[in-house]
Design a protein around this nucleic acid. Structure first.
Length: 466
DNA sequence: TGAAATGTTGGGGCG
DNA sequence: ACGCCCCAACATTTC
């Protein structure tokens, strides 16, 4: 066992907030070096890093860091600022032999991480990044002609179904030798004010009470998924009233459980594995098309006649559109920081096609309100539903919010749960309350007529064809 | 991982 | 028995 006060390896934690199956941590342990775990909240304190953790996501992060700190016996050091300055300074002060971290793939992270690496190496400190978040690196999955995939199905078949054994099997958690020396100048891990705007009023407590952030919570959720979710997953995952989705997305986003662990655990569910590959595909797209969050992948959509209207957008955000399935989804999002995936597609289609609001506004709202807000999944998902992405749903695939509701929430239980004004309506009228003999007076009539909105959207689409 | 319009088919009522 | 119409149930096409 190494002397726990000498020459540590700094583990720079980011979106890998766990101990189990952690390649950088394993390598540090393999060297017999004491581990100095560090988290740096750098989103809004680093020039040139144009990304801010969303509000719901920030609340999750705060709780997850506490959980990580607990499993590190309180040794996690927390900083707010620029990693390009903090890491070299910390390495000097502690005599660190190396700094290890897990790679991230957001385009705005790449130059930043490169600068961290060269700053450390300029000081003679080893700096090494590890493959961790994805089963395959984005550059490992290329078509035979050397260009990136733009269509999901061949990506899925060729890169995952036919070569799943290429990525390493997960390794169990290490017994850690934690660094015990050096100055402790970090922030307190209990200080929520570290993160953007301490929520007032405290909407966060109700939201986070529905979840269990952290590695232990992730594994507890996985057990439940294996026992009670996967058996009915294929059929049940489309019905938002049922609890038959994994709800692992925030855990996976923050790296509280590894994608390798999930892939291995869920071997008997091809449908679930396919969803994991969708995540890989989203990162593949973000890596190879760094404008994905802001610019339509199909250039013709740059000329799309959107109708910017703040009041209309706010009604969508608040779940006051007058279409029950849409409003239920938006309210579930606000109350719980999460929305069922089928309903994400429905509300997305409604915003973009019925209201003609630019998809980027929906993407930004999701980024702020989802606990699983993920730059790759979110950007790719919105481009998909807007019909402007790679391998996207064609634009004319316009969801009818009434028939979608009738199809996927036939009894109306999901709507009744999140839209209490409609709780007294029979199933017959639950998705079209304006047709009821006496519609609830405290629920708004439809803000647009879907049939007319559909025609308007098709005309708008026709104007950019060519 | 659509919806709506349009086309086709076949059973049954009816003169 | 036959033609005709209606219409539900699919199937195909189009956006």
């Amino acid at each position: 066992m190494a002397d726990s006060t000498k020459n540590p390896v700094i583990i720079w934690f980011r979106r890998d907030l766990r101990i189990d199956d952690h390649p950088a941590l394993s390598e540090a342990c393999a060297r017999g070096a004491p581990v100095l775990p560090v988290y740096i909240h750098d989103d809004d304190a680093s020039p040139g890093l144009h990304f801010r953790t969303g509000a719901a996501s920030g609340v999750w992060l705060a709780h997850s860091l506490r959980a990580l700190n607990d499993s590190l016996s309180g040794a996690l050091r927390l900083y707010r600022g620029d990693a390009r300055e903090i890491l070299p300074r910390l390495a000097r002060e502690t005599g660190a032999q190396a700094v290890f971290w897990s790679r991230r793939y957001e385009p705005w992270r790449k130059p930043y991480d490169t600068q961290v690496k060269s700053a450390l190496r300029a000081d003679g400190i080893e700096a090494q990044s590890f493959k961790d978040s994805l089963l395959f690196e984005p550059w490992e999955n290329m078509k035979a002609d050397g260009t990136p995939y733009r269509v999901f199905t061949p990506f899925y078949k060729k890169c995952y179904l036919e070569r799943a054994d290429f990525f390493p099997p997960p390794r169990p958690a290490e017994t850690l030798d934690l660094y015990g020396g050096g100055p402790s100048d970090g922030l307190c891990v209990d200080d929520l004010s570290l993160f953007p705007a301490p929520p007032a009023p405290r909407w966060d407590t109700g939201m986070i009470g529905r979840w269990d952030p952290g590695e232990a919570g992730a594994h507890a959720r996985l057990s439940r998924v294996l026992g009670a979710v996967l058996p009915g997953y294929d059929d049940g995952r489309n019905y938002p009233a049922k609890d038959l989705t994994s709800r692992l997305s925030p855990h996976l986003h923050f790296g509280e459980i590894s994608s390798r662990r999930l892939w291995e655990s869920c071997a008997r569910s091809p449908a679930f594995r396919r969803e994991l590959v969708w995540r890989e595909f989203c990162y593949h797209l973000l890596f190879h098309f760094p404008d994905l969050p802001d610019e339509p992948l199909q250039p013709k959509f740059s000329a799309f006649p959107w109708e910017e209207n703040g009041a209309v957008f706010v009604r969508w955000c608040k779940g006051q559109t007058g279409y029950p399935i849409v409003d239920a989804g938006m309210r579930q999002l606000w109350a719980s920081g999460w929305m069922h995936n089928r309903v994400r597609m429905i509300v997305g289609s409604f915003l973009v096609k019925d209201l003609l609001i630019p998809w980027q506004k929906g993407r930004a709202w999701f980024e702020d309100t989802l606990v699983d807000a993920d730059p790759a999944n979110n950007a790719a998902g919105w481009q998909w539903i807007a019909g402007c992405g790679a391998d996207a749903a064609p634009f004319f695939r316009i969801f009818n919010p009434v028939t979608q509701g009738q199809k996927f929430d036939p009894d109306g239980d999901y709507v009744r749960r999140w839209v209490p004004e409609l709780s007294g309506l029979p199933a017959r009228y639950i998705h079209a309350p304006w047709k009821a003999p006496s519609p609830p007076r405290d629920y708004p009539p439809p803000m647009v007529d879907h049939a007319a909105a559909r025609v308007r959207a098709l005309n708008a689409f026709a104007s950019i064809k060519g």
